[in-house]
């Protein structure tokens, strides 16, 4: 009897531990491969290491700790300054244009549109494509030799010129175009979901009071879309900072450094020039920027649901 009971006990105890046991491989992976690796990269950013795997032939470490000087160097590099400026231009335009187009399309689609079921997937399918595919399509479509410029020429407007993708002053805007094309439909879907969640009774009441459509949107509907605006901003901002493939596919950061972004900067410094220290410090800056946006957002989302 007692034996059976102690058997029961150990079984219940196992059952008590089992959930945590099942969760532990994932938790371990995340803590090693995400947070451990982040700490490691932060550490590398404090060293002058240039090669992988950071040890000399006889096993001694091939680097010295040099404190924050990588960060000082980084912010003195004109290359990095260009990447940051481009980031500002790109992220600003990308977020604003996507939000405007997304909200505009969502409002139009919300007017009991016949064929909404056809239009919506057409607006959204770019989200399913790889940025490399998007980049390839836009790269050649915007290429002055075969794309828009040459098409307009054959249509008879011989002096038409559109060489933005090859032009240092305008190339960054072509990246914005392709990126907006890819994600604005998704933003539309987010706003549409928000619009469909608004209580109609209040709108009808306001209408009886004589409010015009314009005022309905301006004073009642759009203010209620706050959560959708916030989500859209967070998602777009983090996508903007991570933008890498699209630039590689369209311009490889060129012409010159005209479309260099922090993500491409990190990649070329780390793997192209073997400047691990500088590369790591730029990655740390990227992470901190994203964390500044994501952590408060995730914190509030997870807290609300308790």
């Amino acid at each position: 009897m007692t034996i059976a009971q102690s058997g029961m006990d150990s079984r219940t105890r196992l059952q008590g531990w089992l959930p945590k046991l099942v969760l532990s491989p994932s938790v371990a992976m995340v803590f090693v491969f995400v947070y451990g690796f982040i700490l490691f990269t932060v550490y590398v950013s404090f060293t002058d290491s240039r090669i992988l795997p950071f040890v000399g032939k006889s096993g001694e470490p091939a680097f010295d700790l040099i404190g924050l000087s990588n960060y000082q160097k980084l912010f003195k590099l004109s290359h990095w300054e260009i990447a940051l400026t481009n980031m500002g231009v790109f992220a600003g335009l990308y977020i604003i244009i996507c939000t405007v187009i997304g909200l505009f399309l969502a409002i139009l689609l919300d007017q009991k549109i016949r064929g909404e079921g056809v239009l919506r997937p057409l607006y959204l399918y770019p989200m399913a494509l790889s940025f490399i595919v998007t980049g390839t399509a836009w790269k050649w479509f915007l290429d002055p030799g075969i794309g828009v410029e040459s098409i307009i020429h054959t249509w008879g407007w011989e002096s038409f010129s559109f060489d933005w993708i090859k032009n240092r002053d305008f190339a960054i805007y072509t990246i914005v175009m392709a990126a907006v094309w890819q994600t604005s439909g998704f933003v539309m879907a987010m706003f549409l979901a928000g619009l469909r969640g608004i209580d109609n009774e209040m709108l009808k009441a306001a209408q009886i009071d004589g409010a015009s459509n314009w005022n309905l949107y301006r004073r009642i509907i759009i203010p209620q879309l706050r959560p959708a605006f916030l989500s859209a901003f967070v998602i777009l901002a983090h996508l903007a900072i991570k933008t890498f493939d699209l630039v590689i596919a369209m311009t490889s950061g060129g012409p010159g450094r005209a479309t260099e972004l922090p993500a491409t900067f990190m990649y070329s410094y780390t793997f192209g020039r073997n400047q691990m220290g500088i590369g790591s410090s730029s990655a740390v800056i990227m992470l901190m920027t994203i964390a500044a946006i994501m952590v408060p957002y995730l914190y509030s989302e997870l807290r609300e649901r308790k």
């Binding site: 994932s26 690796f37 990269t41 590398v44 994203i290 994501m294 952590v295 995730l298 997870l302």
Partner: peptide, 18 residues
């Protein structure tokens, strides 16, 4: 929360150790 934040990191931060 820790697992979720991991979805949003810029992957540049893990390339070297990976």
């Amino acid at each position: 929360g820790f697992m979720l934040f991991a979805c949003f990191i810029p992957f540049q931060i893990v390339l070297i150790p990976m």
